[in-house]
Nucleic acid binder design. Structure first.
Lengths: 196, 196
DNA sequence: CTCCTAAGTCAACAACGGTTGACTTAAGAC
DNA sequence: GTCTTAAGTCAACCGTTGTTGACTTAGGAG
């Protein structure tokens, strides 16, 4: 069994390849352990590289984290989506971010501890959720976006960090069914009370 | 102006008094910074005491945290409460825990990072929310409790940790008005989908 | 006044972990 | 083959921080 030349692993990777490998390992570690508990030495070991390489490519531990926690929600355009379809459009995207993007979990874990991470998470609310919400809603868009975000955030923490049994084991469809009316409510219900 | 003898501050406090002062300072610090970022030296300095005292009274940093994060939700009995009154009964208690009990914030901040804290938070769901919910609900009590908990948790993180502007500044009444239908839904709506 | 004990201080240890700078070696160019 | 450069290693530094044990002192009991 012979391997094509292109696949033969080079004894030394290219710089971008190592950089990418480090970043990937960092994503996983930060997502699983949070900023403070991750040791640069561990990340380096995951990749099979000296800790100095991490510094070489990312300057500092915080630089590494910033790169690892970089990601976009990339919410779909909600213009013209009916009230009853909102959840069905939004939830798959949330599941995607939760389960396929270690950057989100990294940020989530760090947000309760690091001022910088909290700011980044906050920017997610104002920079990505709020505009998407504004497309379907006329009044109180910031409030509605924040409330929606709080529910999504709470679900993420409960399901993926705390792993609350009923939530962690629940199928996507069932969870969506439970949450759909909440999304509908936050995005479309008329305001109940004047802001004092 | 003379002070009664009992009030005259002793040059040395009693052991329980110092212990309590340390615990209080720890609560505040842990609630504001999370487990890893708090230095025993800071806690000691807050109280005006040597770091060794912290160890003397709590054995270890983790022991101190365990004591600081100790608290009970103490939810009211929901038996006989009408569907429309659930939020009005529950929310004041949640506000109380959020704003007056630094133990909760400590736990919240630590839960995303420490396995032990996460377990403790989880026990809050199963040991305190779930039983309270079971009193008003026949079917799917665990799921309902978990979903309710996820929303409450999300609100706490958004309002007190991230300080998302619309939520952080929103009055209690308005927030309750927004959330009430959600609580109602999670606790009383008939199940929409079979668990696969 | 004098002990005795509990409250408290002090200095230092030891491990940990981010960061650095000098050195080594692979691999492509000529 | 040799030279150059980029990829990578190595050892050590140095600040931080939980933790310890020996020492000090206040203050009530006798």
């Amino acid at each position: 069994m012979t391997y094509p030349a292109e696949v033969t692993p080079p004894r030394r990777r290219s710089a971008p390849a190592t950089r990418a490998a480090i970043l990937e390992a960092a994503r996983t570690r930060f997502g699983a352990q949070g900023f403070d508990r991750v040791r640069l030495r561990d990340v380096a070991a995951d990749v099979g590289v000296d800790p100095a390489m991490v510094i070489r490519y990312f300057g500092t531990k915080e630089g590494l984290f910033a790169a690892a926690a970089e990601f976009t929600l990339d919410l779909p355009d909600l213009t013209g989506v009916g009230a009853d379809d909102l959840a069905h459009v939004l939830m798959p995207r949330f599941f995607g971010v939760w389960e396929d993007d270690a950057g989100f979990l990294s940020l989530l874990r760090a947000a309760t501890t690091s001022e910088a991470a909290a700011a980044k998470m906050l920017e997610l609310f104002t920079g990505q959720v709020a505009p998407a919400v504004a497309a379907v809603v006329a009044d109180r868009a910031p409030e509605r976006a924040a409330l929606l975000g709080s529910q999504i955030l709470g679900l993420a923490v409960s399901r993926y960090v705390l792993k609350v049994p009923p939530l962690a084991e629940m199928g996507r469809a069932e969870l969506e069914a439970w949450v759909a009316p909440v999304i509908r409510h936050y995005l479309t219900s008329p305001v109940a009370v004047e802001s004092s």
